[in-house]
């Protein structure tokens, strides 16, 4: 039985609308127009224990709404959602004991006091037994490298330091499921890697189910074996990242550095279908390969007859482009 089961979730929001200008503002004092925005339309999926699921989609697609429903903050208009056998918004208090949540754009730490004070408050809120608390704290201090920052007031931490503390805060009570809403937003490369590493560790060692939303595809590549793509409130793709790549990433770029230039190389020189020259200079040739990679060897052998190849690099299409293509395909 899956740990998280979501089926047929709908949620609409009412948004007040008015055009700019004083007159419109005055008018809206008496009469307001509302638009309804369908944030979720029939969203269904299941997640098993110990999975890491990347939940992606363009801004405003409904990612955060889904997370908020699953963490018991929002009540959906219709549909079912059971997490470890409980309906989040109906049994909020027992439900939230099992989950940890990080909203990348918000903070759960007390601004003016050292991080450790916030942690101790959480210990009391979740009624964490002393021994468990100390064990967890040790583990978190160790893996998140909190030792030097745990006694610093939160307002004096950098964003990366703060995010590490936020992650720690959401894991003190040994949650079974971790919801991460853009955990790497605004972080530098080093902090991003630290955060990813930590998520992996916690997933492997404690078998914590992780659902994370992000716009950074390298997060997904590093962490998630499964992705859920949402757009305009609907699940568009549910599956493995490699399959997605295979389906969309058919284009590769070959860059060849060479010597022995005698005449410009063009499509005719190579004359293999599916290969086209993007640019050609005295030392560097860039080719585009459409279709699968089986003719790569042909290209190299043909070229080595005419030129002296120094270096070859083959680049796949970046995942960001694949995702963009996917968004376009589904017109989201």
């Amino acid at each position: 039985m899956p740990q998280i089961k979501v089926s047929g979730l709908y949620k609409t929001f009412k948004v007040a609308r008015r055009t700019s200008g004083l007159r419109q503002a005055a008018k809206s004092l008496f009469y307001r127009k509302y638009d309804t925005v369908e944030a979720l339309k029939d969203v269904s999926f299941t997640v098993d224990t110990g999975e890491i699921v990347g939940y992606i989609g363009p801004n405003g697609a409904g990612k955060s709404t889904t997370i908020k429903i699953m963490s018991g903050i929002l009540v959906p208009d219709s549909g079912r959602c059971t997490i470890m056998g409980r309906v989040p918004w109906k049994e909020r208090i027992p439900h939230v004991r099992n989950i940890g949540v990080v909203f990348g754009q918000r903070t759960q730490l007390w601004w003016d006091v050292p991080v450790i004070d916030s942690y101790e408050l959480l210990r009391d809120i979740y009624k964490i037994p002393r021994k468990d608390y100390l064990n967890n704290l040790d583990l978190l201090i160790c893996t998140l490298e909190l030792k030097d920052i745990i006694n610093t007031p939160v307002r004096q931490l950098s964003l990366g330091q703060r995010m590490r503390c936020e992650l720690g805060a959401s894991l003190l009570h040994n949650p079974k499921i971790l919801f991460l809403d853009e955990p790497t937003i605004g972080l530098d490369a080093g902090s991003k890697i630290a955060v990813r590493q930590f998520i992996k560790t916690i997933n492997r060692e404690k078998n914590v189910t992780v659902i994370l939303t992000t716009h950074d595809m390298s997060d997904i590549e590093a962490l998630a074996n499964r992705i859920l793509l949402i757009g305009r409130g609907q699940i568009l793709y549910d599956g493995n990242l490699d399959d997605l790549k295979g389906r969309f990433s058919t284009r590769k770029t070959i860059v060849i550095n060479y010597r022995g230039y005698s005449f410009p190389i063009d499509d005719k020189t190579i004359s293999i279908p599916g290969i086209s020259v993007v640019s050609c200079s005295q030392q560097k040739l860039t080719l585009r390969v459409d279709g699968n990679g089986s003719m790569l060897a042909d290209v190299i052998s043909r070229l080595s007859d005419i030129i002296d190849i120094v270096d070859v690099s083959i680049e796949s299409q970046p995942i960001d482009e694949i995702i963009l293509k996917l968004y376009k395909e589904y017109a989201v």
Partner: peptide, 14 residues
């Protein structure tokens, strides 16, 4: 007003 309240709802407290 900032929405940080989201966290307060994730706590096992009234």
């Amino acid at each position: 007003t900032s929405g940080n309240i989201a966290y307060e709802f994730c706590r096992p407290c009234s």
